[in-house]
């Protein structure tokens, strides 16, 4: 902060209205709007320009408040306390009948469990990290289902071949653990993981 800025700040502190007819609130709005549309009465006012510079500086140093707050970034105890507090079946979704249980039993799986199966099948496939998983069609025993997945793929993976392996793997897992048939598995490549520099040579 140069001396004229600090002089301006003092002026602001004492007389907040002495900004050639503008207020700090207006200047902050102007800053938030990236100084558009240009306002000549602000741009031409040295007092306003100094105040804007001070506001920007305040904004720049603000994140330090958080970083210097002594909040340990990797506190595993704390993380496990949080994780212990969440109800794992919160997103289970609807139940579907997994297999006929006869007159005295209802044997079901949650949609969330099936999503989890597809997700871990995909994660196991080299080069892929799974995102969201969706099903289209009903999930009664014997039904045909369309599986839609979003994936991140490693840089350098030949996508068509790898996606085929992924589809087969997912279809096989569904065939093994349900009475459904995956009529189609959509693999939507949402992201390509960039090669790391500075990693293993």
């Amino acid at each position: 902060m140069d001396e004229s800025t600090s002089a301006a700040l003092e002026a602001i502190a004492r007389e907040p209205d002495d900004l050639d007819g503008h207020t700090i609130a207006q200047l902050a709005d102007y800053l938030d709007a990236d100084r558009t549309p240009p306002d000549p009465t602000i741009d031409a006012s040295p007092a306003c320009q100094h105040a804007l510079a001070a506001l920007e500086r305040l904004r720049r140093v603000a994140p330090e408040l958080l970083l210097d707050d002594g909040a340990p970034p990797d506190d595993e105890d704390w993380v496990s306390r949080v994780m212990g507090g969440i109800a794992l079946d919160a997103h289970a979704g609807a139940d579907f009948v997994l297999v006929d249980g006869g007159p005295d039993a209802r044997l079901v799986m949650t949609e969330g469990a099936l999503r989890g199966l597809v997700r871990s099948a995909g994660d196991d496939e080299p080069g892929f990290l799974m995102g969201r998983v969706r099903f289209e069609g009903d999930l009664d025993p014997g039904a045909e289902v369309v599986v839609r997945t979003g994936v991140t793929v490693a840089h350098g993976v030949p996508i068509p071949e790898a996606a085929d392996r992924l589809r087969q793997h997912i279809a096989a897992v569904i065939a093994r653990h349900t009475r459904l048939r995956a009529s189609r598995v959509d693999v939507d490549v949402e992201d390509v993981d960039a090669p790391r520099d500075g990693g293993a040579a």
């Binding site: 794992l88 289970a92 139940d95 005295d104 209802r106 079901v108 969330g112 469990a113 989890g116 199966l117």
Partner: peptide, 26 residues
Amino acid sequence: VADVVRSVLDGARITDRMITVRVASV
């Protein structure tokens, strides 16, 4: 799993019954 539940219920002579087995994750 349903068979295990049935056998326990049989042992307790409970015949009017409805068993729900729900897979929440694998």
